[in-house]
Each structure stands twice: as structure tokens, then as C-alpha cells.
Amino acid sequence: MRELTYLEAIREAMQQKMRKDSRVYLIGEDIAEYGGAFGVTVGMLEEFGKERIRNTPISEEAIIGVATGSAITGMRPIAEIMFSDFITIAMDQISNQAAKIRYMFGGRAKVPLVIRTAGGGGTGAAAQHSQSLEALVTHIPGLKVVMPSCPYDAKGLLISSINDDNPVIFIEHKLLYKNKKCIQNVPRQMYEIPLGKGDLKREGSDISIAATSYMVQKSLEAAEKLSQEKSIECEVIDIRTLRPLDIDIILDSIKKTGRLLCVEEAPIFGGFMGEVSAQVSEKGFDWLDAPVVRVAGRNCPVPYSLVLEQEMIPGASRIEKGILDLLK
């Protein structure tokens, strides 16, 4: 095994699938010579050529429409939307078309489509390039939604997403792509991580933390600190697949700890963790010693200035405070 960054793991998943399956192709903006806005597809044009690394004009709606149309007729597209903020431009094609086709057609069509996109803030890119819009897509029946938090998961989950016969929104995090702190051993061979399975990233007995994407890393940071400084042992659950949701892994954990803190980057109002919280109180009320609490983004657009951005997006210290408050 060798160590890969998150970005390299994602690239390797696509390369390996493309070598094996000629139906898999990439479509998106600046993905060819340029290698994608974040460098994920660097070198892929050289290996696979223009036919399969399809650079498009700036036309998000058409990217998803074209990918969907080719998916129901025998191809297996991976569409890249440069920033997750721009899925809104393609929302008709995602929500009314790709997500609904299989069901609406009485199961007589399949949509093997992966939409890869970069979400999240922390880069100073401000209100229209920093959003965490997963709640928009998790609300729509017919979409699977995946948010990997580390290189190993990114590769296995992307391979499963490509192998899936249904539309998957695969939301990557900008701060993970080249993050040296999150480099991991990643097997060379292809492997799948099943969609719909969460993962315990850290075992603990005092409190459970359920988190998504980059917030998993931030939660682990807070957990380590509290373990060393206060001997508080947090169990950190990486939700990984938001839909279908593995609620059992969370319920199993609260059976042990009796407390649940949910951590996400998106604004708290109407966020995905509201769903987790509701399901846990419906199904796990008896095991809870305290209400489920959320640490999430503030209810405002992502601001530009670093001072404000850090106030909007939760970091390890806000998570730490959330843990301590919940243990009081």
C-alpha cells in the first residue's frame, strides 16, 4: 500500500473504472487539459482522450441533462459540477429528471449517473462558492448522496457510486483534496465501500458524535483533544452516505453513550442533521440521557472575510464546546 491524498484517491477510482468499463466517461467544465478546477482530473485527458474526458462549455444544466440522457441509454457518466453551488443551475435536470426517471417510468429505466462536485467553505470564496447544499439533494427521493471524509473512503465509495445503477450525488470537500493531514494508506486494487453504511472513525464511551465530510476531521480533532486533556472519550461516527442513511450505526452508539452531538458545516436551519436528530428521537428515545444537539453553520450565507467565515463555519473549538455542554 501507499499513501494517497483524497484527490488522488478520487482520481484513481475513476481511472481504474474507466480502464475496465468503456461506458464510463467524464463530462464537465475545465476537466481536460486544465485537469479540473481543483486538479482532480489531471492526467486523465492524456490517458483517455477527448472522447471520454469531455470538456464542456459553461452549461451546468446541459452537463447534467446530457449525462442523464446518456445514462438511460447505456453509458455510465461521471459528471463534474465544479462547485456544489452550481448544482442549483442544473436542479431541474437533477431533481425533476434524473432523480425521478426510474420510478416515474415504472422501473423500466435506470440512471447510472454520478455527479461529483466540490462543496464546503473555508477557502475565502464567499457566498456563491462555499455552500454545503447536501440538504437540498438529500430531500429528494431518487438520489443517493455521498460525502466522503478521507481518501480510503473516497476511493471505495466512488467505485460503488460508479457501479450503482442509480443517480448518486458525490460531494467532495475542497479542504480535503490536498490536505496533508488526511493522507492515508489506500489499496492499489479496486474495492467497494457499500453505499448506506456509516463508519466508526473513533470508539468511545462517553458521547457519540455523528458528522459529515470535513466535519468528521474536525470532530476527530476535538475528540483527541478532550481525550488527552479531560479523559473524555468520544465515539465519532462518519455518516458517509447521507442517503440511504445508516441510522443503526448511530442508534447502536447511543445505546452505549446515551448522548448524541450532530456536526455539520451547513447552516443549522433545515440542515441534514435535523433528519438524523428526528430519527434518533423517534427510534432511540429510550437510550438518550439528553436531547440530541447540533453544532452546525450559522444561519447566514458564507461570508468572505476570514474572521467572519470562521465564525460562520464550525471548527474544532465549537465542537469541543458542544461536547462539554452536552456532558454537563
Partner: peptide
């Protein structure tokens, strides 16, 4: 923008500038 917008969102509505835009075509 009081630091909330940055380069991509500078607007000066009083001078008739209805804003830069982060979304291509926005």
C-alpha cells in the same frame, strides 16, 4: 460589502453598479 463579499461580490448600488457575480451568467 463590509468584508462579506470580497472581490467577486463588490457592488455599489448607489452608483448604478448592481454587482459583480460569482456565478457565470448570474
Amino acid at each position: 460589502c463590509k468584508g462579506k463579499g470580497g472581490s467577486m461580490h463588490i457592488a455599489d448600488v448607489d452608483s448604478g453598479n448592481l454587482g459583480a457575480n460569482g456565478v457565470v451568467g448570474g
